[in-house]
């Protein structure tokens, strides 16, 4: 147990101070996001992530938003387990036809007002998979999309910038 505390103390807080020059950018971005969320969403915004057919690359980078470097929750953005608790659906992947009904139901289960963010090139335009017997292509072919974040996959920083764009149009 002591080793554990020692490691915690030794590691300290790594969360985006100035370890990398880029981190200033992240900090600034985060503060902007936080200000908008405070003003427009009473301090917090809840995201339900839906993989509608992704290769899992986008999920890995979205998960990274929760690592101690980005720690996106400190800006008031948190990921929730149910669409019923969500303000925003963050959808990845081309929408596979086998996920189409599930995505529609998730969308319907999300209370109004709600926003949909299509994250990654596949979600934005179908990407490498396009439209076929198995794929509906872009998320906007299935549900209305408010915001697109490009990238294959978008980096955590690109995801944060995208989310800022959504709440500060």
């Amino acid at each position: 147990m002591l080793r554990l505390f020692k490691k915690i103390i030794k590691t300290g807080i790594v969360t985006e101070k100035c370890k990398v020059p880029k981190d200033d950018e992240l900090e600034e971005l985060g503060i902007q996001i936080k200000n908008h969320i405070d003003k427009r969403f009473s301090g917090s915004i809840a995201i339900r992530q839906v993989d509608a057919g992704s290769c899992n690359g986008c999920e890995l980078e979205i998960q990274a938003l929760n690592n101690p470097y980005y720690d996106i929750e400190r800006f008031g953005i948190h990921f929730v387990a149910s669409p019923r608790h969500a303000d925003v659906l963050l959808v990845t992947g081309p929408v596979s036809r086998h996920m189409q009904a599930a995505l529609l139901r998730t969308y319907e289960a999300t209370p109004n007002p709600k926003w949909v963010v299509a994250a990654g090139d596949c979600a934005a335009c179908g990407g490498e998979f396009g439209v076929s017997y198995a794929s509906c292509g872009a998320v906007s072919n299935v549900i209305p999309v408010d915001m697109v974040i490009a990238g294959c996959p978008p980096t955590p920083l690109a995801l944060m910038k995208g989310l800022l764009g959504l709440i500060n149009p």
Partner: peptide, 28 residues
């Protein structure tokens, strides 16, 4: 659920294009 027809859309691709597709079979 995430069947995207990879085997079908691979047909007719060039080697470079197939390599891109193969790189997206499983993102990890």
């Amino acid at each position: 659920y995430v069947h995207k027809g990879i085997e079908k859309i691979a047909e007719g691709r060039t080697p470079a294009s197939l390599a891109r597709l193969a790189g997206r079979i499983s993102g990890d």
